[in-house]
Write a protein that binds this DNA or RNA. Structure first.
Lengths: 128, 128, 128, 128
DNA sequence: GTGGTCTAGACCACC
DNA sequence: GTGGTCTAGACCACG
């Protein structure tokens, strides 16, 4: 069963997108593997405190991308091949890193400063 | 005069937020300093290819945060003290870095791998 | 025993409604008369390839309208008086005809054109 | 401006489908021609007493079928070629007539009886 | 119990 | 003012 404990919803960005991204990142990390069972719409909606319809939209998108397999009346399962996993991982890493680099450069931060900032934050979070 | 040449609008996220963030990052970088003049609503609207109302909304937000000083019928000027600049810089850097670290960790990326990814991307962009 | 051979399920409209309508039309046609036995839930479910719950819902509606008489653990029988049959027949015919006339008129079809269309289609189906 | 006065919403069938069908029938009848302006979402929603989102869904479907042309911030216009009009007309007429013939046959009505029913109803409505 | 759809109301970007 | 999107709640068919 896929766990959504680590998902912290942020205001201002569409909820269904956050759910889709969370699942994709889990697949990229290997936390979510092929055949994993997804909690039902109702359970997930209660767990995240959002409307079942919002969950449904996220699931529909994942299904259209071939990452989720769901049939009426039956449970839903993750459907991700090693090839897809690798592709997702690369895409997400590139997108995240690129966003940060763009922001840093625009703020006049040097590469060394950026790396220091990242490593410091990384260590700080590990202590928590 | 504040330049908006580096602003590349991304689809999916509110335009006025992108404008606000662009100005804030410029202030954090020192590119935009206290007293800098903002292009008129009309000019900016034409420059970015967006609706004047959208520009107006971004300006209103910046004004409410005390980062823009505008009087009716007159030009608008950046209003940022060294103390504000430092605060904005720290906030934005922390936010961006934290977002990346969270994403990387969720995807099971090690610190070394993340740093390598960042530095590589940084160099690659410099060549462009 | 009531036959359901002629029932062709259409997607998009609730199945239980289609079943109810099929039975009513059979009563209006005299194909289904008072005392006729209904196949069991299980058999009907298998015959139509539908969930037993859906069959159950259709039966409940017919029962509430007094057109079906079923006792726990026993078979179900059609319960329709000549008066009811005539009423159902008139209602359904009027409803169907009215729907068509409305549609035709809205599309600017003349009465002659409509009659020709109907008779042609009628003959065409008889050949099949 | 396209008029929706003749649209009477029926319960049990999706509202957006009824709206789509109404527009198509208008095109088939020549009542709605290429370039005709559609009332705004808000106006239509108030006129029909339904949610603007329901109107939006109907419009989206019409747009996907190439029968409506709408741009953000601008009015929406019907977009139907003579060829499309003829095609729609044929499809709708066939569908409506076929539905009626099936129903009538199932109820054991003869062709003559059906035609009489239709013509009588047609005259009756004309008097109204 | 499951997933899927329809209607509803609020918000956003744009003219 | 316009069209477009997101979230919400109720309902349906199904296993």
């Amino acid at each position: 069963m896929i766990s959504f404990e680590g998902l912290i919803l942020t205001a201002g960005v569409p909820i269904y997108q956050q759910i889709v991204l969370y699942v994709k990142r889990g697949m990229a990390a290997g936390t979510i593997v092929d055949g994993d069972e997804l909690p039902s719409r109702r359970v997930l909606s209660a767990l995240l405190g959002v409307n079942p319809n919002t969950i449904q939209k996220a699931c529909r998108i994942l299904e259209e991308e071939g990452l989720l397999c769901s049939h009426a009346g039956a449970k839903s399962y993750a459907s991700v091949s090693p090839r897809q996993m690798e592709q997702i991982r690369r895409q997400l890493l590139q997108a995240d890193a690129r966003t940060l680099v763009e922001a840093m450069k625009q703020m006049g931060v040097t590469r060394e400063e950026a790396v220091t900032l990242i490593t410091d934050l990384w260590k700080g979070e590990e202590e928590v």
